[in-house]
Amino acid sequence: MDLILETLGLAASAELLSLNPPGWGGNLLRGLANSLQIAFGAFGFGLLIGLFGASGKLYGGVVIRDLLAIYTTVIRAVPELVLILILYYVGTDLINKASQMLGYGRVEISGVVAGIWVLGIVQGAYATEVLRGAIKAVPQGQIEAARAFGMPPFMLMRRVTIPAMMSYATPGLANLWLIATKDTALLAIVGFSELTLETRQAAASTRAYFTFFLAAGALYLIVTLFSGAVFARIEKWARRGQPSLRGAHK
């Protein structure tokens, strides 16, 4: 093993990427773990916002619909980097003000929680639109049948609308998840030690830019490939009961 690395001239890189100090591999993996944690939380939080947002847009009153329209329009119009700066500083500032008013003094806000809240709000705007489209794609007759048999609204949502819309929503949600994993990199700007920031620090300290950015790229790629496999399974499950499209268009 060592011999192969030696002959390929990669021994130095392997040493730099080693998991134990003085190698920086451990830092990169910690950064990745932080990134994934935030991506996961933000995606989940965004999904929750999206579910309420889509229901509000479809079934809500005028005020709710208008408020949601402002939310999705503004979030989708402003560049994410700007949003992150605004939401992060405004958010932490508001929390600190509130806490000071209640006499608690400044609170230390965990980077993970801040990241989840900031990215979650961004994700929520997109998820609202993905889910709204998916709910609208559910054949009206299936919802009507549930109503005709006396299903109350919340049960109808849980038992019919959500499962039936899943097959329409998964492709869009898979995209959102991948965007969430990559958007974590934007949190570097507020000093959160996710994968990209860790990579930059490692690269700057060692001057081995190529090695570290290649390594980080490989990590992002692995996450994407793995996510792709997981979502393929989810989509297959969500499409249960629907004949395969292959052949239908021949």
Binding site: Q142, E144, A145, A148, F149, G150, M155, V160, P163, A164
Partner: peptide, 30 residues
């Protein structure tokens, strides 16, 4: 509504559930 069994022109079965699941859905959950 649970006393009025409706049958639609377009069937309107729940496509993500098997026939058995379709038939037990309302008795079990409603």
């Amino acid at each position: 509504r649970t006393r009025l069994g409706m049958v639609f022109q377009a069937f309107n079965l729940w496509t993500h559930r098997t026939l058995l699941e379709n038939v037990i859905e309302v008795p079990v959950h409603v």
